[in-house]
Structures are given as C-alpha cells and as structure tokens.
Amino acid sequence: MLKVHHIESRYGEVVGLHDISLEVNEGEIVALLGVNGAGKSTTLKTISGLLHPTKGTIEYLGERIDRLPPETIVRKGIVHVPEGRRIFPGLTVKENLIMGTSNRKVSKAEVEQGIERVLTIFPDLKRLMNQLGWSLSGGQQQMLAIGRGLMANPKILMLDEPSLGLAPVIVKQVFQTIREINEQGVTVLLVEQNASMSLRIAHRAYLLETGRVVRTDTAANLLADDAVRTTLLTAHGRG
C-alpha cells in the first residue's frame, strides 16, 4: 500500500533521515520504534509531504507521492496526526473535528456522521464539544487529535507518539482505541517510544536509529527478542 524506498530527508543542512525504507500493507498496524532523535517524526513528515526527500522515493497505491504537497497527500487518504497533538487552540472541539474534513467536499450529513463515529470511539468528547481546544487536558487533546484525524476518512492513519505525556491508564485506553480503529479497517503507521505497548498491538515494526532502519520483524518476534528488549525497553524504564 505504502512503500518508502531509501529516503534521505534534511532540515536545511541537517540530515534528519539517512536511509529509510519501509513498507505498510493494507490492514496492518506497523510500528516505528526508536529513541528520541532516531528520525521517527521526520519519517512521518516526509510521508505526509511536510518535507520532501532529498533522495529516494515514496509510493502509495502504485503512485509516486514524494513531490506532492501535504494538502494533496491528505486528500489521497494518508492522514498524519502530528506529535504534540496540535489542536487548534482557539477553535472548539467540534470545530476542530470539522477541520478534519478539510481534505474533501463533505455534506452536512457526512460531517454529522463522522462526528457520531468519533463520539462512539471517544464518548468523553461528547460533553466537551463546545469547549475551546486550549482548555482540554492532555488526554482529551490526544483523543481529539486522533478523532480529528479520523474525520479525514483515512486509509492510512499515521500517529506520532499518541501516548506521550499521558497518564498510564489513559495510555492503555489510547492503545486499545488504536487497535479498535484498525479493526474497523484503517491501516495504522504508529510512531512510539513506548515500545512494549506498541509491539503488543502492532503486526510488524521497524527499529530506527540515527535516521536508519536497523531492524525489522514481526511484533511477536521483536517482543520475544532479548536484545530488542534491552535496547528499547530499558532505555525508557517502561515495559
């Protein structure tokens, strides 16, 4: 479905990614794991078009997308929920959700349907609908960020560190939800530092280190691998 082929990405002179190749198949949850600065966010930014790779190609459903701007890529169904949630602070929860439909022409009824769907996944958002984005807690903002991504009707949902800064109970809930969303037919590319939780819901994973893929395998194999456990899991004291 999505094929990233030997890409290099830069921030001006700084090389963010040296050589990343990965593949995401329809229906999968694929995790991108690695410590801070490994290049996980940069990979997502390059796929969603915020950055253009300086080498390599990105193919989606057989079509090159690595020169397209983000507004075009999101129209094709690749939806990037960025790190840090990035809720529009001055818009209400409902308006934030509606902004998620900006990637296509929608009728009022479709918008309402979309909101209904998000509310069945995140019922807590219901009573917050008219609150401004800035006033939400971290967990609420994360639900809203994922919900807003779902409003775009994604074929591939790319989530950048959805568990960051959340209380453990909420983290569990978020991962549970990601699995539910996937079961509804959405392919997920999940970036996380929380490797153990991610590997429990993912089908496959890639390990990134300083802008390179250092290992890829099924989630089950990686979970069972002691070397992986020590490099990833102990580095963050979670597990």
Binding site: S48, L50, P69, P70, E71, V74, R75, V79, H80, P82, R86, F88, P89, G90, L91, E95, I98, M99, G100, S102, N103, R104, R148, A152
Partner: peptide
C-alpha cells in the same frame, strides 16, 4: 467552515495543511 479554516490557518498553519486546508 471557510471562516474556521482561515482561523485554523492563522492558529497553526502546518497542522492546517495536514488537514488538507490550502493555506
């Protein structure tokens, strides 16, 4: 919706682009 999209663009242009708004 257009008015809200203009506000969204003013508040966070990068995220607005990710939503498909032509900033």
């Amino acid at each position: 919706k257009l008015g809200k999209q203009m506000q969204a663009t003013a508040q966070d242009p990068t995220t607005a682009r990710l939503m498909g708004i032509n900033t």
